[in-house]
Design a protein around this nucleic acid. Structure first.
Lengths: 203, 203
DNA sequence: TCTACTTTGTTGTCAATGACTACATTGGCT
DNA sequence: AGCCAATGTAGTCATTGACAACAAAGTAGA
């Protein structure tokens, strides 16, 4: 054993990284502050200096997850194809991320976030839907999609992809393949938005 | 204090009921076997006779939740209106249930069900989608909807409503009202399925 | 009725955990 | 050199889930 310096130096980063790994392997419930400290060769009280309590650590993990996911989504939205292809690509990016990090996604959307820290978390988490809203508004301007409140429509798309992501991540898609569901969902939504909803159908 | 009989008599039911209340009030993490035992005026070891461990109790709660939800969905699917109205009604029933029992829904779909999650749980949980699939197949037969694999389309609808339900339950719908999202989602999906997806668009 | 046997509940115990406190070490700053 | 905030350590406490040994109550058969 080489002598460990008294100060770790990058404890916060090390804890965050290790926590994400642990969560991905054993879920949030498999995460223990004491075990985490052991994993990073630090005393069981050290993490408290960087995260007030366990929830604060989890919140930080969630935030990092959103940031990582947003990068993927923005990347997909900036490909050079036509709007509809980009729309499908964004959906795929979202679901792909979910399938790759199922437990992380659960943590990201977990409802038990402290009311105070949720400010930054909410903003970062809402970024994905803004991408969808911009694309829909743009497509309406070109006439590719029928009129309708872009905010509500974006929420519908987001909601659908979110459901796909969660169910895919949880393995609840039964027989249907993730790929098929994403394709069918984006196709159906786009077709529905292009056709518009006859006013007579509104109840 | 009146003398308590040595045998509770309905301990299992009492534990289940109280557990559902606690979960709805404090989430799954707020559930403690020992506190639960205290609440029902029983020793801390008693629950073990009815539920092997905490997860077994949670699974039982989830199962009860699915059964309750299925009753609502089947009721909505059997109203006498036209197919499209019934479709919307089923969606609303699902989301309404979710909004009324947010924490319970989270438990029901929690991915941390032991890999050998009881077959009963899986079957009961999959019942809702079968309702949707039957309605879609029926609508295709009458020509109200375009052709397409009913299984995949039902999964798309389910996924969308599930996403709506979870996000609504978690309060992640931001400005948009639950009612608007459900209406827009079911309308858009139905319009998309009615229009069908031009083969040329399939990539 | 007496007697095994099963079910259900009680009590005691254990290791693990999250949170808290008091203390030690470090390195930057003046 | 000397102060001091940041960072880490060590010890403690109540709570928890799980387990085992024991007790009480119902049950079935002679």
């Amino acid at each position: 054993m080489t002598d460990q310096p008294y100060h770790h130096g990058k404890l916060r980063e090390a804890l965050l990284e290790r926590a994400m790994d642990t969560i991905e392997e054993a879920g949030v419930d498999g995460l223990s502050l004491r075990q985490l400290a052991r994993d990073v060769n630090v005393s069981h009280g050290a993490p408290a200096k960087h995260f007030r309590d366990k929830q604060a650590l989890i919140d930080a993990v969630a935030l990092a997850g959103f940031e990582s996911m947003n990068r993927r989504i923005l990347g997909a939205a900036q490909s050079g194809d036509d709007l509809r292809s980009r729309f499908v690509r964004v959906g795929r990016a979202y679901v792909d991320f979910a399938v790759e990090h199922p437990a992380l996604l659960t943590v990201m959307y977990s409802t038990k976030h402290h009311p105070d820290s949720s400010e930054e978390l909410r903003n970062t988490g809402a970024q994905g839907i803004h991408v969808a809203q911009a694309m829909i508004a743009e497509a309406q301007a070109t006439g590719a999609l029928a009129d309708g409140d872009p905010g509500t429509l974006a929420m519908v798309c987001f909601v659908s992809l979110h459901g796909t992501a969660l169910l895919a991540a949880g393995g609840h898609l039964d027989g249907t393949s993730v790929e098929d569901v994403v394709t069918a969902a984006t196709d159906t939504l786009w077709a529905g938005m292009a056709a518009g909803v006859p006013a007579a159908q509104l109840s």
